[in-house]
Computed example of a mutant assay.
Amino acid sequence: MAMVAALVLGLSPDQSRPFDLGKAVPIAVAVVIWLFSEIGGQGAVSASDIALYQRIKGLIDEPALTFLSQHDFGASLRDSETYPVGEICSWHGAGTEFRDSKIQKEWSVCRAKFEALNRLYAEKLGPTNYLSRLSAIPPGTDDWNTPQYLSDAVSELNALASDTYKLFNNFDRKARSRLNL
């Protein structure tokens, strides 16, 4: 903005005048400041971006990250362990997008991975005979003779959860850096 004002005030096209060093210096300073802000890419941090980041971290906390990185989907799980991923996938609207384009780019990739994992939860997990538990292996399946399609489902869940964990950590690092947290 300062650069535009300096250009308008200093280089009015309707008047011809000789070079004025007094007006050229503020213009040059404005251009340099603008270039450094563009190169650094770091302006004022948006309060809404910090609030959204904190909302995300409130859901994808240490227990959720531990679950994504360590759970073997060959074992059953509490249905509540799928809640953070499902909750993020239910978000909509501008309030769920970062104003900072670099953070939003990373978040879009991460959120797409959460949505893929949520779809896989719906496709591959089913209830067990125990209250509030889910499993990729249906009750009564012979542990020593598990069908290949069930083993493949477990492998797919494990791989996608691990990929989601890695992508989220990448997003988290970059967002903290951009938000100065």
Score class of each variant (00 low, 15 high):
Ile39Arg: 07
Lys166Thr: 10
Ser132Asn: 15
Trp91Cys: 03
Ala116Met: 04
Arg176Pro: 10
Ser46Leu: 03
Ala94Arg: 12
Ser69Asn: 12
Arg176Tyr: 04
Tyr53Glu: 07
Asp61Pro: 04
Arg78Leu: 11
Ala2Gly: 06
Ser76Arg: 08
Leu7Ala: 14
Val31Gly: 09
Lys166Met: 03
Arg78His: 10
Leu7Met: 15
Leu11Gln: 14
Asn118His: 12
Pro139Glu: 02
Asp143Gly: 01
Leu59Trp: 07
Gly93Asp: 00
Cys110Ser: 06
Tyr149Phe: 13
Glu87Lys: 04
Gly22Lys: 05
Ala44Leu: 13
Phe73Trp: 13
Phe168Val: 07
His71Met: 14
Pro127Ile: 09
Ala175Val: 06
Val45Ile: 14
Gln70Thr: 13
Gly22Asp: 03
Val29Met: 14
Asn145Tyr: 02
Thr96Tyr: 15
Val25His: 07
Ser16Ile: 08
Pro84Cys: 06
Pro138Asn: 01
Val85His: 02
Arg133Gln: 07
Gly95Cys: 01
Ala30Trp: 11
Ser46Trp: 05
Leu157Gly: 04
His71Cys: 08
His71Ala: 09
Lys124Thr: 05
Gly95Leu: 03
Arg119His: 08
Leu9Trp: 12
Ile27Leu: 11
Gly40Gln: 09
Ile39Gly: 02
Ser177Pro: 05
Leu179Arg: 11
Ser48Leu: 05
Leu120Arg: 02
Ile103Leu: 07
Val8Ala: 10
Gln15Ser: 09
Arg17Ile: 05
Tyr121Ser: 03
Leu77Phe: 05
Arg133Ile: 00
Glu81Arg: 10
Ile56Asn: 01
Ser135Trp: 07
Leu21Asp: 13
Glu156Ala: 12
Val25Met: 13
Asn145Glu: 05
Ala116Gln: 09
Glu97Ser: 06
Leu134Lys: 14
Lys124Asn: 04
Phe114Glu: 01
Pro139Thr: 03
Asn180His: 09
Pro127Arg: 15
Ile56Met: 03
Asn169Trp: 11
Leu181Glu: 04
Ala64Asn: 05
